[in-house]
Design a protein around this nucleic acid. Structure first.
Length: 708
RNA sequence: GGCGAGGUAGCUCAGUUGGUUAGAGCACAGGAUUCAUAACCCUGAGGUCACGAGUUCAAAUCUCGUUCUCGCUACCA
């Protein structure tokens, strides 16, 4: 394989509206960091960029809610997230931010270039507009009832409760969050990126050129988009938080956050170049640069479809690979910040690394476990028990124990110095050790080049296991008992310990990308400079000079105690049991949920009088074909029988509904769904668990009875 | 419903273009050992490769169907 001249590695920009959890860490930042550390050990020319994504509508909304400003929010989270990464050994060359002036200039230039080349289209459409505040309403500024789960505080782009992506038009009873009024529709003009014009390019580039070297899930996801028919995507919004649209007609508009965020990789590179007196341009323009995006699977479409189209139009290079990870679950359930079901990096740092018995070893312990369960090919699951077993059973017992027993024996049997080799007494096992190290190096190298970090780390641990086996066979502690009777005993001990020590030196090099703090501590034990960690040194057995005095043994890691694991589990458990009472106040999003329960605007009696509510009896019920959520009900209203569709198939089986009495909005305008006309609507109440209950009379009464 | 990714030992996962007896780690059982953080080392037990057909001399691997999980998408008055 040709070695690229330089590398540009990106990790998804974290959204600066809150803390990030270990799922994010395992998904993008940790693998990226491992890859970069490996490349740097190979002395490759590499820049690792990341930064805060600080635009989008969620941030100003959150600001309004918390009674502060958008600027204050990003200024709060940007440094915390940056520090969290540092504490976990994620070492970016630059951690930039999209609110920076340099980014605004870069994104503006990018947009202007595309616009100037005629690569963007404009389209005028009707959008929600708040007359009271005289502003167009971005998705996040509109709330209403979620059509999916019935949650009545869903946003225009997404329902926080069920996680469903929405468009504002889908919301039931939309309300402006600025004024509380119902918005009107008004014409506005926006710029669009016509993805449909680039289908041939995408098809060729992804489905032909990369169908084998990209992960199946990534290619599959792209294929799904391409086959599904690409649509033009709006790249601007009516909002005043973000990068201003820099062309005529752009007043009051900003670049849509997904358009401006990936450009953040470019502006971050520029800032890095300024800081280091380098030229940024080759990194984004020269064909001999290898660009790699590390992301989670939720970001595939942006990094494989949209951003590449933007890059191509703008004359930049395309990513060589996008090794997207799947998701990491936690103790049997999806991680979710809003539900509190997650382990935030900040929490882990405070509860483990920064405790008295903590330290950077625990940063590496987390890195180790997360890599060992890295969701590279399918969703994986973080469990505290697994964390404990993995750390205690492999990291401590195999790896650290080998280093420790080597050090202890070396001090006991070799005066704390690197012993000399006695070539005449070297046997096959001694020689095989060197070969094994070289083979392991080759394996690890190949695996890292293929982004198979889980397996690569396993190989390094396996090498330590081989060290244990080697020592067990040689039994230097037994030889030590026969020093007087066997004149070759000391020489044999020396050979064994020399091999073990050189193996430790090799282990420190190979483990360095994964566990950088540990590698540094091993250098300290060996009294060597960090330069020894250069990848080219792996496979050599002369890294520690004969006669060199090494430091006294120190434990690299501590074990994870049962009580600590129980405490963490108890914390999650308490979340489960108190969820219903605390959920509404646990997080800012949830706070908005309680707010959402606020009453709708007052109506007069006449408004109510327009609604004709009737008691109905369900005569038949069946699933609507080709729809997951729809049930087709045949309801007796006394004066007539009619078909009503209801999106409750996930909650009730059709058989269980026959004979049930329900309350029907009888004079609702008919609506066609899935080809079937629905005449009315059935009322349901939702409890705190999200379970649906029919509203019905206490006793069975005549169908058609009116309700008032 | 459409599309995508998965289903291999109790658990976490490998299995490249179809080729002896389907592998590894953890956990479990037995043994050995004491230099080491009750760590290490050896041995063992364990799987109808989701299910059913088909192609083939030969299928975990290719084809078709069924089923379950996850994601995207449609459906939600």
């Amino acid at each position: 394989m040709n070695t690229p001249k330089r590398y540009l590695i990106t990790a998804a920009l974290p959204y600066a509206n809150g803390l990030k959890h270990i799922g994010h860490l395992a998904g993008a930042y940790l693998p990226a960091d491992i890859y970069v550390r490996y490349l740097k050990a190979q002395k490759r020319d590499v820049v690792f960029v990341c930064g805060s994504d600080e635009h989008g509508t969620a941030i100003p909304i959150q600001a309004t809610k918390e009674g502060t400003t958008a600027q204050a929010i990003i200024d709060k989270y940007h440094p915390i997230i940056e520090q969290n990464f540092k504490d976990l050994g994620i070492e970016f060359d630059i951690y930039h931010r999209t609110s920076d002036k340099l980014h605004h200039e870069t994104a503006s230039e990018f947009f202007k270039t595309l616009e100037g080349n005629g690569d963007l289209e404009t389209k005028t459409s009707l959008q929600y507009f708040d007359e009271a505040t005289n502003t167009f309403l971005a998705d996040r500024y509109i709330k209403g009832t979620c059509p999916n789960c019935g949650h009545n505080e869903a946003f225009g782009d997404q329902c926080e409760k069920c996680g469903k992506s929405l468009s504002p038009e889908e919301l039931i009873n939309p309300v402006s969050t600025l004024s509380g009024n119902a918005p009107i529709k008004k014409e506005t003009t926006h710029w669009y990126l016509p993805l449909n014009k680039h289908e041939a390019f995408l098809r060729e580039w992804i489905l032909n050129q990369h169908q084998n070297d990209w992960r199946p899930a990534v290619v599959g996801q792209c294929k799904s988009w391409i086959e599904g028919g690409l649509q033009p995507r709006a790249v601007t919004r009516d909002l005043d938080w973000g990068v201003k649209v820099p062309v005529a007609g752009g007043d009051g508009k900003v670049l849509y956050v997904w358009f401006d965020a990936p450009i953040g990789y470019i502006s971050a590179t520029k800032q890095w170049a300024i800081n280091n007196n380098k030229d940024w341009q080759p990194y984004w323009k020269d064909a001999d640069t290898k660009l790699v995006h590390f992301i989670g699977k939720d970001n595939i479409v942006f990094h494989c479809i949209i951003f590449p189209v933007m890059l191509k139009l703008h004359g930049n290079i395309l990513p060589e690979s996008v090794p997207a990870n799947e998701f990491m679950n936690l103790e049997g359930d999806k991680m979710s910040t809003s539900r509190g079901w997650s382990i935030e990096m900040d929490d882990y740092i405070n509860q483990w690394i920064k405790k008295e018995n903590g330290g950077t070893g625990l940063a590496d312990s987390l890195r180790f476990y997360l890599t060992s369960i890295s969701p590279e090919s399918k969703d994986s699951e973080f469990t505290w028990k697994g964390f404990q077993e993995s750390v205690n059973g492999e990291l401590v017992s195999i790896f650290a124990n080998f280093v420790n027993r080597t050090w202890v024996l070396m001090h006991k049997l070799c005066n704390g110095k690197v012993p000399p080799i006695h070539p005449d007494l070297l046997d096959d096992e001694d020689k095989a050790l060197l070969t094994t190290v070289q083979e392991t190096k080759d394996k690890v190298t190949a695996l890292l080049e293929q982004y198979k970090f889980r397996e690569a780390q396993f190989e390094v641990i396996h090498l330590a296991r081989i060290g244990n086996q080697y020592m067990q066979k040689k039994e230097p502690w037994i030889l030590a008992k026969s020093l007087e009777s066997d004149t070759t005993a000391q020489a044999k001990i020396n050979n064994c310990m020399h091999g073990c020590l050189q193996l430790c030196a090799n282990l420190s090099i190979l483990i360095n990308p994964f566990l950088p703090f540990t590698a540094k501590r091993m250098c300290h034990l060996m009294k060597v400079v960090d330069k020894m960690l250069d990848w080219e040194n792996a496979g050599k057995f002369n890294l520690l000079k004969v006669g060199y005095t090494l430091r006294a043994p120190e434990l690299l890691f501590r074990k994870i105690e049962d009580v600590e694991i129980e405490a963490q589990l108890a914390k999650l458990q308490s979340l489960l049991t108190t969820k219903n009472s605390t959920m509404d106040t646990a997080t800012p999003q949830a706070e908005s949920a309680s707010e959402e329960k606020a009453l709708k605007p007052e109506i007069v009696f006449d408004d109510f009088g327009k609604i004709d509510l009737r008691v109905g009896t369900i005569l038949e019920a069946k699933k609507v074909e080709k729809a997951d959520k729809l049930l087709e009900l045949y309801v007796d209203l006394g004066f007539e029988k009619r078909t009503i569709l209801s999106g409750i198939a996930m909650h009730f089986s059709p058989e269980s509904l026959v004979g049930k009495q329900v309350v029907v909005v009888a004079n609702l305008a008919p609506r066609k769904m899935r080809g079937i006309e629905s005449k009315g609507m059935i009322l349901l109440a939702e409890d705190a668990q999200g379970k649906l209950h029919f509203v019905q009379p206490q006793e069975v009464i005549a169908s058609g009875s009116s309700i008032s």
